[in-house]
Write a protein that binds this DNA or RNA. Structure first.
Length: 455
RNA sequence: GUGGUUGUAGCUCAGCUGGUUAGAGCGCUGGUUUGUGGUACCAGAAGUCGCCGGUUCGAACCCGGUCUUCCACCCCA
């Protein structure tokens, strides 16, 4: 028989993995609540028109489309069918698509429920998203995002809080040394304005974003290929040498962008956040200004965040986010500024695993296993088990009256730290023999003492 | 979507320029030990070599396709 399998880029999770994933999720969720965010959930799939065209050209390709039910081909007219153009035929055979991220569905939610929502609205959402991407390390076709967004406030304090939120979560996860990289879309616009390439903003930023990966020369080559003039690229030169700490970088940028009103606006926004964070301090993360950061350019208008794993861990970003002044605009609701961040659960998992940062207790299973000596003995054991369970102690009975060696081996393999033996003699005395599997020590205890010992 | 890479027992992997009944370690099952696991010793089960097709007297090995894994690009959590 052919072995069953799961689709490319998807995974099964074992008990240990699920427990560890919950540990991360609970940590994130706890912090979200702590910062005043409220949970919502949205459907796994949306109407295609809600998602299509929201993530750029590339994005549409990566959206999983759901085939219409019924005899969907019947509705396609012959001319379209004969053309064999997949992109063109898609809307007629697919009207629904799997969620690609949590931000666009959230925008849809806000517009749809605007009359019930009290603004500013702080929501969080932890759900899987799907991308028809080609899998790689830390890249899946089904993965979880953990998002926190605020809509209905343009206050920069939100950005400050989101930086703190990142720091709080990573600090709780004991993940030291993550870098929160920050930029501002207005600065990028300012630079484009300064070099006279406003119309090439996206090409320009996409190329700039690759600086630390492919180097200055190749970035320049790519910009030339995309039609940015040699002249403009030369004006860009000072940008490649922006260095120092946050304040120093800001000073350099100020000189560079003094001619651009929008650029200066971006700088002052960054400055506000940096100053606040310097005063408030971070514990696990460090904040860094990175003018080459250009992620999610499609809807971000102000701050842009990206969190990279500690140095030495080969992993893409473990989080990202930013401010979008007009996200709800695409659904017909104007002047509703939002800002949010996302945690990449699956990638955080891989990083914690690589750095061995999962606490021992996260893998703890049953605390005590009762050996099964037969029907009467099992009933006697079950009474004690109920008592232990009511006291919150994880206890279980070995289901079958198997040989002791097998039952002990089971406890051993599952890392169950205690075993209780209660046979005829114990029953006569109303006692229980408790064995510590690590030390091998045994003692005979009453139910009350057993409870106490295992608490 | 483009280019490359990987697939052999439950797991990790050997397997020569194509040559008979495909191996190891770990794990698993049973026994030494019927109220004592982790160690030791003994025995055993388990694979249509990812799948489909081709070349050949003969294919785990060569060729083509396909799926999967990982990597680079694209893009992203």
């Amino acid at each position: 028989m052919k072995k069953p399998s799961i689709p490319k880029g998807t995974r099964d999770f074992s008990p240990v993995e699920v427990t560890r994933r919950h540990y991360i999720m609970d940590t994130i969720k706890g912090s979200f609540n702590n910062f005043g965010f409220q949970p919502i959930e949205t459907p796994s799939f949306e109407n295609s028109e809600t998602l299509m065209g929201k993530y750029g050209e590339e994005g549409d390709r990566l959206i999983f489309k759901i085939l219409n039910s019924g005899d969907f081909l019947r509705k396609v007219n012959d001319a379209t069918y004969a053309e064999k153009n997949s992109v063109k035929i898609t809307p007629t055979i697919s009207e629904k698509a799997l969620r690609y991220d949590l931000t666009v569905p959230f925008a849809r939610y806000v517009v749809q429920h605007q009359n019930e929502i009290t603004f500013p609205f702080k929501r969080y959402q932890i759900q899987p998203v799907w991308r028809a991407d080609r899998p790689q390390k830390g890249r899946f076709r089904e993965f979880f995002q953990c998002d926190a967004d605020v809509v209905g406030s343009t206050s920069l304090w939100q950005e400050v809080e989101l930086v703190q939120l990142y720091d709080t979560v990573f600090s709780k996860l004991k993940l030291e040394g993550v870098t929160i990289k920050m930029n501002n879309r207005k600065i990028l616009s300012g630079i484009a304005e300064m070099i006279g390439a406003e119309d090439k903003l996206i090409d320009f930023t996409v190329a700039l974003d690759k600086l630390d990966k492919i180097g200055e020369e190749k970035v320049k080559t790519e910009m030339l290929e995309k039609g940015i003039s040699q002249d403009a690229i030369e004006k860009l030169q000072p940008l490649f040498s922006v260095a120092g700490n946050a304040s120093e970088k800001l000073e350099t940028l100020k000189k560079l962008l003094s001619v651009s009103e929008i650029g200066m606006e971006g700088i002052s926004e960054l400055e506000f956040i940096v100053t606040a964070i310097e005063t408030l301090q971070l514990s696990a993360a460090q904040l860094e200004i990175d003018v080459t950061l250009a992620r999610g350019l499609n809807y971000y208008t102000g701050a842009i965040f990206e969190v990279s794993a500690p140095e030495g861990v080969a992993m893409g970003s473990v989080g990202g986010g930013g401010r979008y002044d007009d996200l709800t605009g695409i659904f017909g609701m104007k002047d509703m500024s939002g800002v949010g961040i996302s945690f990449g659960l699956d990638r955080i998992y891989l990083v914690l695993e690589e750095l061995n940062l999962f606490p021992e207790t996260v893998t703890a299973t049953t605390k005590v296993l009762f050996i099964n000596f037969g029907e009467k003995e099992a009933l006697y054991a079950m009474k004690a088990i109920s008592n232990l369970r009511n006291a919150g102690i994880r206890a279980e009975l070995y289901p079958d009256n198997s040989k002791m060696g097998k039952q002990m081996g089971y406890a051993d393999k599952r890392d169950i730290p205690f075993v209780v033996l209660a046979g005829e003699s114990e029953m006569r005395e109303e006692m229980y023999t408790l064995k510590n599997m690590k030390s091998g020590e045994q003692e005979c205890l009453s139910l009350a003492n057993l409870l106490e010992r295992l608490s």
